[in-house]
Design a protein around this nucleic acid. Sequence first.
DNA 1: CAGTGGTCTAGACCACTGC
DNA 2: CAGTGGTCTAGACCACTGA
Lengths: 253, 253
Amino acid sequence: MAQAKYQEIADRLRDQIDSGALQPGDRLPSEPDLVKLHDASRNTVRLAIALLTNQGLVVTRQGLGSFVSEPAEPFTALLSRVQSQPAGQSPSTLLPQVGNLDLEPETSRQVVEKSPASASVAQKLEISTGDLVVIRRRHGSIGGVPWMMMASYFPLDIAEGTQLEQAGDIAQGSIRLLADLGHEQLGFIDEIGARMPNARESAFFGLSTGAPVLVVNRTAYSKYRPIRLTRYTYRGDRVRLNHEVGSIPARDS
Amino acid sequence: MAQAKYQEIADRLRDQIDSGALQPGDRLPSEPDLVKLHDASRNTVRLAIALLTNQGLVVTRQGLGSFVSEPAEPFTALLSRVQSQPAGQSPSTLLPQVGNLDLEPETSRQVVEKSPASASVAQKLEISTGDLVVIRRRHGSIGGVPWMMMASYFPLDIAEGTQLEQAGDIAQGSIRLLADLGHEQLGFIDEIGARMPNARESAFFGLSTGAPVLVVNRTAYSKYRPIRLTRYTYRGDRVRLNHEVGSIPARDS
DNA sequence: CAGTGGTCTAGACCACTGC
DNA sequence: CAGTGGTCTAGACCACTGA
């Protein structure tokens, strides 16, 4: 056998999806049908379907069947918009914003906690692992669809005794608050990666297997040091990050 | 049974990984061992391991065993570095660049092809699906590790009869060439997403299951229209995209 | 060679869905 | 209720690895 039988079955189904014989939303043949079609055992058929599921091509629903994944219109988060022409102007949008303007994003109230920094947080804030940091968390949904988890980490010496330690929104925004505290933000670095979700993220986003998350680590700097790390986690199947540089001609659509 | 047995087994293994009882690189108990440990059948044990594999926590190697994934030091690609202070200066680095300066990136020779635009390419170039486009492809590796696939798409009316249609590198770079052809690049939009790799990408990157890819669609604009779409595909487990805005203090590390 | 994971079978029972 | 996928078992043989 050059190729495993479950691979063959998966390949045939994939071909049918790629060729359009099976359209997004269409039901795949049932497992008993595939058993007869390919003269295989049910476990082998299930292996084939699991393969496609983990590649994000298929979703299965108990009692209903397996279906070709329907790509959803993604939300767009604007990472930054930078015109290099006008000078002296700080980038205005430091928070990712939702591009789909017809949908109102809902965000949860901010929850605040104080705990030791993990290795990855400590490295970015240039402090030691285990040093206390103030963490402000919130989730975001659009039209009932959860799409973002966010956590901001502040070094304790910056946040202690300030409004940053209090739950709830900060009226003037945290960038302004930090500036008032003597930590003016002059720049930031976004580090963007992708990975598979953990259990908490799968549950919050309602992700099926075969769907990654996008992670943005935004480290903000004053003239002297990192003053904040904000970690955004997005569902990879519904979010695109946009980043605009220079001048873009106006578009119709 | 509140929870499926294979879920229980997976949870226990995950706990051992999270708690550090199983370190990255450690071998998990063998399948026969897990069968005895949890009084389960081998298929059930394999289901548990498959779950962890698809979450990217575990990799299995035939004849050797299953191992806790070892996170590799990621390569960093610089998407853009923008100081908003100095005026009139176009962003200098339009090609993602490798941050690990101790490693020399190798790139393949560019391959050129002319073919009809897919729907997604057409939409970004603001042409019609099926319109011919010139495609320039290349792959990139670092220290023998494949890390990037790249494809640039040019509308035919821009590229036809120019050096863009010839294979091999463009000495002065395609941005300069486009400018010489009357299409000066004034800005671009990056659209960043994550998804599971297709068969070609898995093969090129040597990705195991449970590892996504990062995709960057960079659409470049002249004063009037899109002049190029470049699609970068990176292995998600080894690449981070960086994007710097404003002024960042010098760091020691 | 012994031990490991990879593939496959045949059959059982359960849980969910829509009619 | 019939039809769907979800879980689980017991056993077989193959393919790869390192000693």
